[in-house]
Structures are given as structure tokens and as C-alpha cells.
Computed example of a mutant assay.
Amino acid sequence: MLAAAAVRLDPEDPLAALSVGQQPDPGDLPADWVSVRVRAASLNHHDLFSLRGVGLAADRLPMILGCDAAGVTPEGEDVVVHAVIGDPAAGGGDETLDPRRTLLSELHPGTLAEAVAVPRRNLVLKPPELSFEEAACLPTAWLTAYRMVVSRAGLPAEGGGTLLVQGAGGGVSTAAVLIAKAVGHTVFVTSRDAGKRERAAALGADAVFESGARLPRRVDAVLETVGAATWGHSLRALRPGGRIVVSGATSGPNPPAELNRVFFQQLSVVGSTMGSRDELVDLLALLVRTGIRPPVQQVWPLARARDAFARLAAGDVFGKLVLTP
């Protein structure tokens, strides 16, 4: 079958490690696994990290890339694929807390292919209101944003909180803006790029600012995916007792801790990784109820996966890039 795969690891030039060509079909599967015919799959920075060798060992090559997909089961059901392969019982009902959890494309072949095999419990019915392309954007970036905003930020469930999203443009940050507005919060967004600030405002952000700019007031929570470049600003932006939710550190993972500000202002720093299958179900219901949809910047055929990867690597993205077998 046609697939986009890592065939070697290259920390300096990840696209040189990418192959778009034939890979084996899913073989004999355990009784509780199923092969899904992929109708759409979306890219994430995780795919570039894999090509660089982050989280993917050389002895697992070749590895089909991709975490996100929507497709059709052998029984004809339209489904969304949950990317976290783990045991809910090992995490107290949350598979993301299973110490042996893994994402598709780390241990098991991923979604950038004509078919992907997953445990049957990892399938969620796709609502008819969402296209396959829209649904394929949800399992990683949108689910990560949903958990950060709804489950981890400590904001009022009925809305009315104030949230800062650092770094407009990426899949998680655009999702966070739309989700936070849909559930009734005030949203501030920062970016170094004027065009991305304009697009964040068009998504519904209440105010947009250059990176590091002084905000009109302190916020209840900050969503932090940038890391070292924005960490100090995130701490200064919080009201006393506020909370930073961290799910990434694209500019560097070890910023100065500024512990004096953390303890004096009684701030909380909370980690967040992906989301559970149950949260994916809730996220789909939120999209159906509110009408918000993932911004899809461009759709390519799977055969042109290299073009999509090149655009992702260049950073010229606002929203999601989708491949269709």
C-alpha cells in the first residue's frame, strides 16, 4: 500500500529521511485490533520529530508516520482513530497515564497510509456533521488543546475565564482559541508574526499581541507550547494563583524556572499530554454542538506527502495540513 514512512533518521534534514512509496499492508491482527481504510490523515510536528529520531529508534525502521486519521472500518462504519495506544486500567481509567503508552508511528505503524491497524477501542464514530478531512485533524493537536483548555487549565466550566495562548499559528494554538471561545472564555493570543496575529483575531481571539507584549490584564491561565522563548512572559502574565498548562517546548525545554515568582504568586505549573479516548468523544460532541471546525490550510493527495512535509518543516502553516489516500 502507499504510505509516507521514515526509512532512516536525520536530525539535520528530516525530509531526507522520508520515503513516499509502497509499504506492507497491515498483516494478521490480534483479535481486538481492526484495520481501518484511511480516508484522510493530518500532519503534526511529531512526524518531523520522528524523522529526526526523537521518540523513534532506528531498529523500528521503516516506520509509517502519522498519528491522526479518519476512515472506514471493514463493517462500513465511519470512524476517527484515537492515536494513544495504551491500557486505561494501567492509568486509572486514563490511557495517557499508562507508563507503557505509545502513539501511533512510535511502536505501531501510523496513519499516513491507505490503511492503519489499531485496537478496536481506539475507534470513535465520526459524526456525519464533520468531513473526513476535518475529523482527521482532531486526534492529536485538537485533542491536546481540548485537554489543556477544558481539563487542565482550571477555568470555570461555565465559561468566563481569561486565557493566554502563546504562539499563534500551530495546530494546538489555533484549536485552543476556537475551543476556548466556544466554551465561553476570553482569549488573548501572542505571535511574532503579524499575519498569524491577524488570522488568530479572525478565529475569534479577543485580543492579539506581539510576543512578550504587556497584556491589558493578568489572566487566569496560560497555554504554553513554546517553552524557553515565552516562559518568562507566561509567568508575568498570570494573576496570583493562576496556572500555566504546558504541552510542549518548541523553542527549548529548559527555561529559567523563576521559582521566586512561582512561589510568591502561588502559581501552578501543570503538564498535559494528548488526551483520552473519552475526551476525544467529548471533543467531537463539542464540535457538533457549537459548529466550530478545524481550519484546514491545504489538502494534498498522499502521493504528494513530501510537499506537505516541506511546508510543515518551513513553518508556513496556520491550521492543519491534510493528506488523502
Rank of each mutant, 00 (worst) to 15 (best):
A201R: 15
V189R: 11
H185Y: 13
V183M: 13
R147H: 07
Q166P: 00
H233D: 14
T162G: 09
W142M: 05
L238Q: 12
A135L: 08
W231P: 12
A202G: 13
R243Y: 03
P119Y: 07
A135Y: 01
A180K: 06
V246L: 11
A201I: 09
R214F: 00
R218M: 10
T162W: 06
W231V: 12
D193T: 15
R192M: 10
A182R: 05
G161S: 11
R214V: 13
T144A: 04
A117S: 13
L164Q: 03
G170V: 04
A229N: 10
A237M: 10
A194D: 15
T230D: 11
G212F: 03
A202Y: 07
A228W: 06
L164T: 04
E210K: 05
A201C: 08
R217D: 12
R121M: 07
P128H: 03
A176Q: 01
A228L: 12
R218A: 13
E158V: 09
S234E: 11
T190L: 09
E198S: 15
G171A: 00
P119F: 05
G169D: 08
N122F: 10
G212V: 02
A175G: 04
D206T: 09
V165N: 04
I244W: 02
G195W: 15
A176D: 02
L164H: 02
Y146N: 00
E210H: 12
G154R: 03
A117L: 09
L178P: 02
R236D: 15
R214L: 12
G241C: 08
R217S: 14
V219A: 14
D193S: 15
P216K: 06
T225D: 05
R152F: 02
L203P: 05
S234A: 15
V149M: 03
W231H: 14
L215W: 11
L164V: 05
A221T: 11
V187A: 10
V150T: 04
L178H: 04
L223G: 05
R217P: 03
Y146H: 05
D206K: 08
F188P: 08
V219T: 13
V165G: 03
P156R: 10
G242T: 05
L155G: 04
L178Y: 02
Y146E: 00
T230K: 05
L235P: 09
V246P: 01
G241W: 09
G169P: 06
L163A: 09
A202N: 08
V165R: 02
R236Y: 10
C137D: 03
P156W: 11
R147A: 08
E198N: 14
L238V: 07
V118W: 11
R197C: 13
R192Q: 11
L203R: 03
A205Q: 11
V118G: 10
P216I: 11
G204S: 07
F209N: 09
E133I: 06
R217H: 15
T225Y: 04
K196L: 14
R217C: 14
V183W: 06
M148D: 05
H233Q: 14
I179C: 03
A200S: 14
V245R: 03
